[in-house]
Design a protein around this nucleic acid. Sequence first.
DNA 1: CCAATTAGATAGCTTACGTCA
DNA 2: ACTGACGTAAGCTATCTAATT
Length: 310
Amino acid sequence: MMIHQREDHLGLSLSLSFPSETHQPSASSSPLQLNLTPPSMTTPSIPPFNLLHSTSLAKKETSDRSILDACRVETRSFLKGIDVNRLPATTVDMEEEAGVSSPNSTISSVSGKRSLERSETDNRDDLLDCSRGLINSDEEDGDNSRKKLRLSKDQSAVLEDSFKEHNTLNPKQKLALAKRLGLRPRQVEVWFQNRRARTKLKQTEVDCEFLKRCCENLTDENRRLMKEVQELRALKLSPQFYMQMTPPTTLTMCPSCERVSAPPPSSTGPSSTPVETPRSHHSGSSHHRVPFNPWAIVPAGHRSFDAVHH
DNA sequence: CCAATTAGATAGCTTACGTCA
DNA sequence: ACTGACGTAAGCTATCTAATT
């Protein structure tokens, strides 16, 4: 952490910037350039998704689903370490294992609202689709209802695998995938669109959580530095006490430019006159230097100062 | 293709009710 | 008759996700 201090006659102000070695290991060097890649930490309280479904018993499945849902809630705020491209895939799995959901691409229900709004072009498309055996339930009602299918476990797995390889599809890939899965190309296209949206949403959640923690850290740091400023002001307003203080270290600070300098190795003890190092500033000039008390600024073990600047 | 939205499916939770020891 | 435990179904809510705009 770099502390840029400026002092006018009565006031002090601070500005902060992160060096590369900060309290935030995952943060980059720029204060505004944040490494948003989720760290590869795991959340112990969240079991891996693939451990959440281990039985086909409906009763057990219910409890597992409960755990899964609870985990999902937690996962919303602790997504680190989870590949956002990796769908839990347990929902479909468990539903199908328990026979709750319709089997392979079954159209589950019908929404009448949108059915009336569909055009005849869509109707013809659906008829074409039906010829491919993709729509199997509106043979009964014969209308052009909006259908909601749930993809089968295998279909989801294939789509996920394909998404991991490339999250966009060219027309050829789309057709091949649709043919392989027995879906319409439009369905494959929509699935990829929705999948990209989910990925983006989860990444956004991860980023948001990370930025939130960054903000909290900066707030804490700012609060701490403000306190230091107050302590420095108090020291400045009590010169007697200030001058009687024995410098706890050999660091000195130039009051005019606020630079901290360390004495050369030959310096003997705190009472000796501070001598600038060869790298120090104002070489040869007669600067007034006052002892610098890092105790008032740096809590033990918190950070190290750059002793000499310029 | 993306963003926003809709709507179906499903699970969890609560509550009321019935049954039984 | 009263009580507590247990099972079940209905209603509500939250979440996921296919589909639409």
